[in-house]
Design a protein around this nucleic acid. Structure first.
Length: 718
DNA sequence: ATGTTCCTTCTTTTT
DNA sequence: GAAGGAACAT
């Protein structure tokens, strides 16, 4: 492990000297409670920060403070976030405040990419080969489907995607297949037997294929840190100050990870807001905030409640709404620093067509008459599919817009096909990838041939590519079995394609290789044919142009990768020990949310186009906009149908989600709902969200209401 | 083995 | 209103 030691040893690139002047500058413009948190003496800290109270600012300023005032080396700091968006924003702001050198030296990224980085470093200690591939959720489900078919389980009765999320949940609780097999009965689950068998097989196959899914990255890192004192101590020696953003969203395995990473002599500062916990469905547990107080030594508490974002009327509604939640850790009433502001407009629309229409027209008016920039406007919704009507309406009004999330670029079939080929080039044991593309485009390899090939895999306990390799050697011998000879003939073209690409991998640049893969595999041709058949002409969103976008995305990455290698400092996301750009690229894109790409394949942060922002409320967390249209604020949508059925915890999370949506608005908030909504062909009566009724009821007898209800093509209001 | 057509199913939220 | 699956024909 000596090479690891040198990699992690101290280097004094920065020779820091305490700089009182610039340390004081950090505190400029902070209010008292912010300043207290930023300039607090070294200690474990819990910062409870309401929406819009300058949470990120405090976090970033604290990092700058640690470096300037406490003389902590940037490389001894670890900043953890939940989403890539948050990580990116934090890095940008650190670079701005403390300089690019600092930004490059400290680790600021998501739980998943930190764990990926550690695992690449210590792969062998964690039972992985260093070139392991990260399984995206699509591949995960496909693999589970494959297992279920082998067991002859009914995939209608028990859906593979359900099983996938169940297994992920188990991993997030730290429960491995053997543990589940023995303890599972207690979970009182009718599908227990099946899940247990699938889980066991799934674990075995992932190990064979040298791949890890998302939750595996966390679990395996935690297990490694628990078992391996040396690796853990290395982390302890390195990370003196750990900072965690959006702490309310941590799940149990992430919490364990933080505990393991924090040395007794190190400090950890967590920042969060229990009222903004909206990932409970994914195992997030905001009571970790309470637990934190007990589990860590001498935790100092700080509270930020002065809101810099929204006007008071918006906050009044937000406060009134969230006050209805009974399971809050702490009652916070946000106070505005920005004055009373405009009345919140609640638009009661007859149906979703009127709703989409009025939103489009209102935005057009704001832009034309008041000169509001499109980019200062956001449309937020509960579910991705709600965006459709607004897309049409905005197009009709000739309003430019960007949709974040939605149909994900890297989830498209054509992209996944191309990536499967590429995965095989770095990890030939990745049978999930092989299964996907062995007959794509069609190579006359049907279920029969695949079954025969897999039989060999079973017998030799090896991967498909390796099995073909064995075959190719075998059939050269005299008197080779005839059926095996014909089997080889069938798979030979595929095998030679992979070999051909592998040969080129060493010689060609990454983007050339990707281009070659798309061409030589025949994917390009196949999708071109499909496009023309479906009448999709060249430009607009055709599959072929998506493949082109992939190549240009790879080109961008290639340039960045080369530059960072030259700089000698690898930036966080790319910071893998490997020299293989393809492996690095593949790992990155599975972890980096695809919504960060627009249709040109560029990072949207570079996109300066003036356009209305459209996204889910979940995606909007941490962001703010001058004008917010919170649409589809309806019964069975927000709160969702499901949460209404389950009630309790699910309902309070929906209320928090509504709260997050409302508190995104700085200046003007429009809440819209429809009485009737047509969806998937049929029309349903929805009407105002019960959350809205709560708020209206609370102001029933009040003279001055912070809102006005405006009927849109509808006579009565209820 | 492949391509067609018809059918069902499914619609949270994300790493 | 799309995407995946089953059933069928070639």
């Amino acid at each position: 492990m000596t090479d690891l030691m040198t990699e992690l040893s101290d280097d004094d690139l920065l020779g820091n000297v305490e700089d009182t002047a610039s340390a004081n500058k950090i505190l400029e413009g902070l209010n008292d409670s912010q300043e207290q948190a930023v300039s607090a003496p070294l200690s474990n800290m819990l910062v409870i920060a309401g929406a819009g109270t300058g949470k990120t600012r405090v976090l970033v300023s604290r990092i700058a403070w640690l470096i300037k005032k406490e003389q902590i080396q940037p490389r001894n700091i670890l900043a953890v976030t939940f989403t890539n968006k948050a990580a990116g924003e934090m890095r940008d702001r650190i670079a701005l405040m403390a300089g690019e050198i600092v930004e490059k030296q400290l680790w600021a990224s998501t739980f998943h990419s930190i764990c990926l980085r550690l695992l690449r470093n210590y792969a062998r200690y964690a039972g992985l080969e260093p070139n392991f591939t990260v399984l995206d959720s699509d591949s995960q489900t496909t693999l589970i489907k494959r297992i279920m078919k082998e067991f002859e389980f009914d995939i209608k009765e028990l859906k593979p995607s359900d099983v996938a999320s169940r297994i992920s949940k188990l991993k997030e609780q730290g429960i491995r297949a053997p543990a589940y097999a023995t303890r599972g009965k207690r979970f009182d689950d009718p599908d227990y037997e099946k899940i247990s068998r699938i889980y066991t097989a799934y674990e075995r196959i992932c190990n064979q294929e040298n791949s890890a899914d998302f939750s595996e990255l966390l679990l395996r890192t935690v297990e490694l840190l628990e078992v391996n004192d040396e690796v853990r101590n290395l982390q302890h020696r390195r990370f003196k100050e750990i900072l965690v953003d959006e702490f309310q969203d941590t799940n149990s395995i992430q919490y364990r990870f933080l505990k393991l990473m924090t040395a007794p002599t190190s400090h950890i500062m967590v920042v969060g807001d229990d009222d903004q916990s909206i990932y409970g469905w994914r195992g997030a547990d905001y009571t970790n905030m309470k637990k934190f107080l007990n589990d860590f030594k001498d935790v100092k508490e700080y509270l930020l409640a002065l809101n810099y974002r929204s006007s008071q009327k918006i906050l009044d509604i937000a406060n009134t709404l969230i006050a209805k939640n009974t399971d809050r850790l702490m009652e916070k009433v946000l106070k505005a620093n920005n004055g009373t502001g405009e009345t919140v407009k609640i638009l009661n629309c007859a149906n979703n067509n009127y709703e989409a229409d009025i939103v489009g027209k209102t935005i057009a008016k704001l832009h034309q008459e008041e000169g509001i920039k499109y980019r200062d406007i956001a449309i937020l919704y509960r579910n991705n599919y709600l965006s459709l009507g607004f897309e049409q309406s905005l197009s009709n009004c000739r309003i430019p817009f960007i949709i974040y999330g939605g149909q994900k670029f890297f989830d498209r079939a054509e992209i996944l096909d191309a990536l499967a080929y590429l995965r095989l080039l770095v990890n030939e044991d990745d049978d999930t990838a092989a299964m996907r593309v062995i007959n794509v485009p069609a190579r006359k390899i049907g279920p029969k041939v695949v079954a025969d090939l897999r039989a060999i895999c079973e017998e030799r306990s090896c991967s498909m590519i390796k099995a073909i390799k064995l075959l190719s050697a075998y059939v050269q011998q005299d008197g080779a079995d005839k059926t095996l000879k014909t089997l080889y003939k069938k798979v030979e073209p595929f095998y030679q394609l992979i070999n051909y690409l592998k040969e080129n991998k060493a010689q060609k640049s990454l983007s050339e290789l990707v281009d070659l893969t798309i061409q030589a595999s025949g994917l390009q041709e196949m999708y071109a044919l499909k496009d023309t058949k479906e009448g999709k002409s060249g430009e607009d969103n055709s599959r072929v142009s998506n493949l082109g976008v992939l190549v240009s995305n790879v080109k961008d990455f290639e340039i960045a990768f080369a530059k960072e290698k030259e700089d000698g400092v690898l930036k966080d996301e790319n910071a893998l020990i490997t020299d293989d750009p393809l492996l690095t690229y593949l790992s990155n894109i599975t972890l980096v949310s695809t919504s960060e790409l627009d249709e040109e394949g560029k990072n949207s942060s570079e996109n300066v186009a003036d356009a209305v922002n459209m996204m889910t409320i979940h995606a909007s967390k941490g962001l703010e906009f001058k004008y917010v249209f919170l649409v589809g604020f309806e019964n069975t949508i927000l709160p969702s149908k499901r949460s209404l059925e389950f009630g309790g915890k699910q309902l309070t999370e929906e209320r928090r989600l509504a709260y997050v949506g409302i508190t995104r608005a700085k200046q003007d908030l429009y809440i819209t709902y429809s009485q009737n909504r047509s969806l998937f062909g049929s029309t349903n009566t929805t009407g105002a969200s019960p959350f809205l009724r709560e708020v209206v009821k609370a102001y029933n007898s009040s003279q001055e209401k912070p809102y006005a209800i405006i009927p849109i093509n509808y006579q009565t209001m209820d």
